[in-house]
Computed example of a mutant assay.
Amino acid sequence: MKKPMKFNRRGFVTTSAAFLFAPQVLRAQSNPVIRRNVSSFALHEWQDHFDALGRGIIISDTNTMVLQHWTLDGEMRVYPTSVPLTDELTRRGYTEVVEKRENPGWAPTPSMRIRNPEWPAYVPGGDPTNPLGTRALYLSWQYYRIHGTQDTRKIGRRSSNGCIGLYNVQIEEVYDRVPVGTQVKLI
């Protein structure tokens, strides 16, 4: 004669868990989920912002922290950026590249000096503490730049006093590809 089965709490919980999760396990084995790292930014089309490529176009999205650059022949590249700390420091709209400088010197703006009186009055180009990095694109707006940074922790963050920052190696690439007169839009 068969011995009657004994039920205990541990056996009940184990059996219930196996019964409840079996469909998920079987589904996972038969239909594997492939997860991809999907970036949080959406790319822009230059035609949505400009009538013609002209000498080239830069669109910098301050919300998603990405800069897109189109060359005269329509080739587009994407770069992660740092952006201004606050909306009050952020200027948006149309401008253009009016000057380019290798190893630019840096002086804080008058408003930066008020907020941070301990900052130096000037930092020469090539100095490892220079916040403009190795290259800078000067925009038609006074004090606004697209530039490199020595502090790579700033990229992908709200960390600047108004400018758009790129890794030094990437601003050097953009610098070489961007002529003066390139159209720029900060959104």
Rank of each mutant, 00 (worst) to 15 (best):
I146E: 06
Y144D: 10
A121H: 14
W119N: 09
W141N: 11
P124G: 06
H147V: 02
W119M: 11
P120G: 04
Y144V: 01
A136F: 00
L137F: 13
G148L: 10
G125I: 04
W141C: 13
V123R: 05
T129L: 13
L137W: 04
Y122W: 15
N130L: 07
L137Q: 08
P124T: 10
P124V: 12
W141D: 11
W141V: 10
L132W: 13
D127C: 04
G148I: 09
L139G: 05
V123W: 02
P128D: 00
I146H: 02
P124D: 00
A121F: 05
G125Y: 01
P131N: 08
P124N: 11
G133K: 04
I146A: 01
A136V: 00
Q142Y: 14
P120W: 05
G133T: 00
T134H: 00
Q142M: 14
D127L: 01
H147S: 11
I146M: 00
G148E: 02
Y143N: 10
Y122Q: 13
P131I: 03
W141M: 11
G125H: 04
A121Q: 13
Y122V: 13
S140M: 09
Q142F: 14
N130I: 07
T134C: 10
G133V: 13
P128I: 05
Y138Q: 15
G125F: 04
S140C: 11
W141Q: 11
D127H: 10
A136M: 09
G126Q: 05
G148V: 09
P124Q: 12
P131K: 08
Q142E: 15
T129I: 09
L132E: 13
A136I: 08
A121K: 12
A121V: 14
D127Y: 06
T129Y: 11
V123F: 00
H147D: 03
Y144Q: 01
L137S: 09
V123K: 04
W141Y: 09
D127G: 01
